[in-house]
Structure formats: structure tokens, C-alpha cells
Computed example of a mutant assay.
Amino acid sequence: MRFAQVTLQNFRNLPLVSVRLAGRHSFLVGANGQGKTNFLEALGYVTALRSFRAAEPRALVALGQAQAGLGFTLEHERFGESKLAIAFGADDRTVEWEQGRVTRLADFIGQFPTVVFSSQDNQLLRGAPALRRRWLDLTLAAMDGAYLAALQGYTRAVAERNILLKHGGRDGAQLTAFEREAATQAVQLVAARAAGVAELSELFRAAHARLVPEGETAALVYAPDTAAATAEDFVAQLAKSRPRDTLLKSTERGPHRDDLEFLLQGRPAKNFASEGQQRCLVIALRLAQAAYFKRHRAIEPVLLCDDVLGELDPERRRKFWASLDGQPQVVATGTALPDAEAGSWQVLRVAGGRIEEGGAA
């Protein structure tokens, strides 16, 4: 897949942008705060109809405007030349493409895969478990509608249980009903996460090996919050924890507390890895995500590299380019043009929310 034409209106600080992306490598260059990351954010929106910055829709609409519009022409392995139009405000959204108007996220998510490499990705390793769960949920849901449905069902059931807990948990029958619903979905989530992480870990190890010196090994490990193996086990666990959960007014155990651990040489990477090793680990994670998307959909994801290539030393940059599988489209940003070793680039110059073609590098 590749983006051929991008038109944006009132998206963050980009009032009106129309850009043709030529070839496989496009580089947006400009000072910080001019709109480079906003452009990548718009491209990344097509994967799951959400911002990779986790921003609310109202934050994506330009100040003083009621609505933002995104228009794309894409070259796609399954759909050929495909046109996609998205319009949204604070409380509404419409998505239209050749297949018709999109009414369910499950029918759309993952059809246009992108993978974002961000300078903030180290937080996936160092940050709170919620960041890793969000990454894992997006990765699995983009390829599996049943996973998305289980995640949505589990989230709703836990939210309803929490409302009852905040009111003292006096309605035992309703609590039991929501606990049974949560348990049914929880078992599906845990099984899918275990299988998904096993596959992703294989891809992660392979990607990491291409980036680092020989003999340095890495792995991903799924760390479920609960050992409940069946829905009945999970219902019993929730029933047992009712007194404590009522006191805390929230559901304290379950898949919404799961984690994902990075290992380097068999040890927790967040405790032992150097800055350079951490950067390689999160780049390997993104490469594994791209390989996972390609394996499951037979679609080449577009790689969106937000100011990350400049953080790598020359040897790691060389290994990054050598590690790319296939011929993906890469759209990258930076405050300076890329080194010649990265090959030729279409250059787009960004200043004050305007994007203009600036030749080749």
C-alpha cells in the first residue's frame, strides 16, 4: 500500500494541504512546531480512525473550526486505486470509500495499515502498562474483528460493573450479570493475547537481530493479570474480590491490568538496557508490528517515521534500512535532510502549516 495524494483541511495547524507523494520515500523537513507530525498523524488515522497521539477528535480540528476533513488517494494491493474521505468534528465522524460509507469500525480497521515510529516510543518500554496494552490491543484488533468485539464487550462490562461498585455494589444480581459477561470476553482476550504475543515475539526477535550485534537477544513476554483459565474461574475471582473492589470503587483484576514485558539477554530491558539498546528494542517492536500486519492481510504497511532516524547513529541507521522487508512506502520527518546513505527522497518543506514540494535529496 502507498499514499499517492493527500488532502487535509482544518486538521490541527494545517488549514489546507494538498500534496502528491511520489515514489517510496518522502521526507518532511522543517523546524519544530510547523506541522510535520500533524501530517503523519493524519496519514496514521486511516488505520483505526484514531490518532497515534491518543488525542480526542476535538483536539484534531483546527482552532475555531467546526470540522476537519481528510482525503486520500491510495494504491492498494486489494482495492487498486482507492479514494478515502474522512470528515469529523468533536462529536461526529463520517468515513466514505469505494466500499461505501463505513458504519462499523470492525468493517474498516486494519484495511489501510500504517506503522508509526515515534521519538516517544521509548515510553512503550519505560512507561505504564496501559501504553503497552493500548499498543497490543490496536495491533491485534486491526487484524481480527473478533478480538475487537471481545475487547469492546469486556470494556463495557467492566465499566458497568464499576458503576455499580461506585453505588455500593448493592445490586448483587446485576453485578453477577456483568461479571459473567466480563468473564466470557476476558477468556477470549487472554487466549488471543497469548497467541498474538507469541507470534509477535517471533517477529520481534527476528527484527531485533537485524539491528544489533550478533549474540544480543530479545523477547516479548505476555504477563496476564489473572491466572483464571475459564470463564467460571474468572467469575469466581470477581465474586471473591467484590468487597475490596466495592471499597476501591473499581474492578482491580482482569485483562485491563495485563502487561507486556521486554527482555534483553533474558533480563527485564527497562532495568538493564542502555539508551541505544532501548531505541533498538522499540524500533524492532514497530518492525514486528509491520511484519504482523503484512502477514495477516498481505498488505504492505506504510511506515511513518516521526523524527526518529536522526536519533540513530550511522551504523544503526544503516541496519534499519537494511532490515526493511519488501518495499514499503516510508514517510519521515526531521529538522534536517536525511543522509545520502538512506537513498533518494522526495522532499517536502513544512513551515507555518504549509507544505510545499522542495525537490529531491
Rank of each mutant, 00 (worst) to 15 (best):
R2I: 13
F3V: 13
Q9T: 10
Q9P: 05
Q9V: 08
R12V: 06
L14E: 00
S18H: 14
V19S: 15
R20Y: 04
A22H: 13
S26F: 12
F27P: 05
V29I: 09
G30S: 09
A31P: 14
K36Y: 02
E41N: 02
A42H: 01
T47G: 01
A54K: 00
A62Q: 09
A62N: 06
L63H: 13
G64P: 04
A68C: 02
G71Y: 06
F72P: 03
L74C: 13
G80H: 02
F88S: 07
T94Y: 03
T94S: 12
V95F: 02
G100E: 07
I109F: 06
V115L: 06
V115W: 07
V116I: 03
F117K: 00
F117P: 07
S119V: 04
D121Y: 02
Q123T: 08
R126Y: 06
A128Y: 08
A128C: 08
L131V: 02
R133W: 02
W135R: 14
L140H: 03
A141E: 00
G145R: 11
G145P: 10
A146M: 12
R156L: 06
A157R: 10
A157T: 11
A159H: 10
R161I: 11
R161N: 04
N162I: 13
R170N: 15
D171M: 12
G172Q: 15
T176S: 15
F178M: 13
F178W: 15
F178C: 11
A182R: 14
A186I: 12
A186S: 11
V187G: 12
L189R: 11
G196T: 09
G196V: 14
E199F: 00
L203P: 03
F204D: 06
R205F: 07
H208N: 13
T217K: 14
A219W: 07
A223W: 06
P224D: 07
A229Q: 10
E232W: 04
F234C: 01
A236Y: 10
Q237I: 05
D245R: 03
T246N: 03
S250L: 15
E252P: 11
F262S: 10
G266T: 11
R267V: 09
E275W: 09
Q277N: 13
L281A: 13
V282R: 06
I283D: 04
L285I: 06
Y292S: 12
F293P: 05
H296F: 08
R297E: 08
R297L: 15
V302Q: 11
C305N: 02
D306Y: 08
D307Q: 02
D313H: 13
D313T: 13
D313A: 12
P314S: 07
F320Y: 08
W321H: 12
L324Q: 08
G326R: 05
G326I: 03
V330R: 15
A336G: 13
D339P: 01
D339C: 11
G352H: 04
R354H: 00
R354V: 07
E356K: 10
A360N: 10
